[in-house]
Amino acid sequence: MNAETVRDEGFVDLLISGDRQAFSELIEQTSAKIYALGMRVLGNEQDAEDMLQETYLKALKALPNFEKRSSINTWLFRIATNEALMLLRKKKTGFNMVAIDQSDEEDEAPFEILDWCCLPEQEMVSAETRTMLNKAADQLSPALRIVFQLRDVDGFSGQETAEILGINEDAVKTRLVRARLKLREELSAYFRDRMEGGVNHA
């Protein structure tokens, strides 16, 4: 994402004034990430596309009232995550935004202690590994998944992630630690199998 342009104040003024080319530019810079967020949170193409369209429709409508209290990026992702969570709520009763702030899960001690960092690079970037990365992330609860996606995949800061989700930074941190540790466990188990099961790294 071209953060420089998105942060540019002149560009934001153009957006607020309803400049359609600027809005196209905003889509250009952000839509792939918004769609990826939708895929991560909602898990299927149809819902991700619905969320993508609703996000920009709402943004288009709300832009004249944008007050520049946050960056345009953070603001847009806030709309997107709200959309995604609303769709999720429709599908799964029981999940709500409040749950993202609750500490209802216990921290688990690391179980897999194996240094797989030395595995060959092609092992790490294979299509199979990529599929496994997606599967592992899909196993996280939505609350953890969304924090991990924003923070570690999309590269938002802790403060920005807190702003996007409307929770405090400590809650972001707690969720992030859990998500990271769970994923590390999954990856370690996967790479343990690769190292022990026929991948000759001698």
């Binding site: 990430k33 202690i113 790490m124 590994t129 570690d152 995949v153 999309d154 590269g155 590390r184 990856l187």
Partner: peptide
């Protein structure tokens, strides 16, 4: 080992974002 593999875990996921495409 936890530090190293945690770092690598984050890197691997971060790299997937480069392939994000609409």
């Amino acid at each position: 080992i936890v530090v190293n593999t945690l770092r690598k875990t984050i890197d691997l996921y971060h790299d997937t974002a480069e392939n994000d495409d609409l």
